[in-house]
Design a protein around this nucleic acid. Sequence first.
DNA 1: ACCAATATACCGGAAAACCAGTAGAAAAAA
DNA 2: TTTTTTCTACTGGTTTTCCGGTATATTGGT
Lengths: 211, 211
Amino acid sequence: MQHKPIQILIVDDHPMVIEGLKTLLGDDDRVAVKCHFMNGTDTLSFLEKDTVDVILLDVNLPDINGVEMVPKILNIRANIGIIGLSTYSEPSIINQMIKNGVKGYLLKNATADELVNAISHVHQGNFYFGSEVQKILVDSVAQEGNELPKLTRREKHVLTLIADGKTTNNIAEELFISPLTVETHRRNLMQKLEVSNAASLIKVAVEKKLI
Amino acid sequence: MQHKPIQILIVDDHPMVIEGLKTLLGDDDRVAVKCHFMNGTDTLSFLEKDTVDVILLDVNLPDINGVEMVPKILNIRANIGIIGLSTYSEPSIINQMIKNGVKGYLLKNATADELVNAISHVHQGNFYFGSEVQKILVDSVAQEGNELPKLTRREKHVLTLIADGKTTNNIAEELFISPLTVETHRRNLMQKLEVSNAASLIKVAVEKKLI
DNA sequence: ACCAATATACCGGAAAACCAGTAGAAAAAA
DNA sequence: TTTTTTCTACTGGTTTTCCGGTATATTGGT
């Protein structure tokens, strides 16, 4: 007996990707693209009334961030499987998506096979990640413990002012605090980020996306 | 009388984009997708033997950079119109693509209409840029004169060492030159990038992608 | 062979950053 | 309310950077 096809919802703001997905999935009768939306808001209001089995969710939507979309979707329909889609593989985004509850993640260079595989796995409640994505996951496990240190609000503020080329005295004036305090902040920053001067402080801050 | 359809070649490593483009262009009989390739090498060897009217060229190819592809293509077939395609709008890439000779540039959120418009404009020897891309062009004209200063090889090297947190003395030892020379380089760097300390030197260097 | 750009090197002085501690308020978390 | 974190501030000293110049090999291109 033939199963009922898996109902798919596509969320992506690129017409050519939507059409591509429809074409790639159209050949396979195990899946059926129910509809598509080009932004987050429409998607959520659709899900209030109707539902699907699996959502293919682009992370770069014009209105709502894909990362934020995931909990919103699961809040409405907890048993929908969500597969993240993006062009580039940014570790931080993929990690966040997974934390928020996606069941799969593919890059847009995925083939039709991978796509259908991912969908059926996710629909059965399993996980599925593309090979490049898996590599990233392994890397992030390997780097466990190398978490970025938490900076306080004040420290972040001081950090940005340092990046702007302000001197300790400038910053002190701007924040109405003692230069000595500013220096303490700077030293704490350097200690937390494990560097020994302002130049590399800025470099690692940029690398760790703290600026 | 009906014109002969414009022959299109698609170069993109994303199956779903290729299919999407084919679908979007398939409805319109003014254009005909002749074939597609998923990397630069295959594209170039095809063009040695055969030709098309317009190429839709993704900038992120697995083997050859899209920016480098443009002159290679035009070297083989000077009268092919090339339309750049990318997901995000990075000014530097778009500018380089235009310098290298693309006749059009679209983001991947382009609609079928825009796509066909671009193709027919370019085929007639005109330019066509998507609205977001035009915005970038305007911005880059507005910033004319703010071109990034050219750093010498040595300066770039010193710059990276500064970013690594090395002191003037460290760098001097590493390069077997006098600390005074290193300082001169640092000062020249700061002058060229118009900053007054090493911290913001690193920041603008990162911004301008010199690191 | 020549000119411009690059890489090299120096002096002296002022300013800022960096280091090793300590420590009291204020705010947030428990 | 107690405890912890954050923000604040200080002493005193060392190192490094930053600024104003100047100046000579070396190299690259024409």
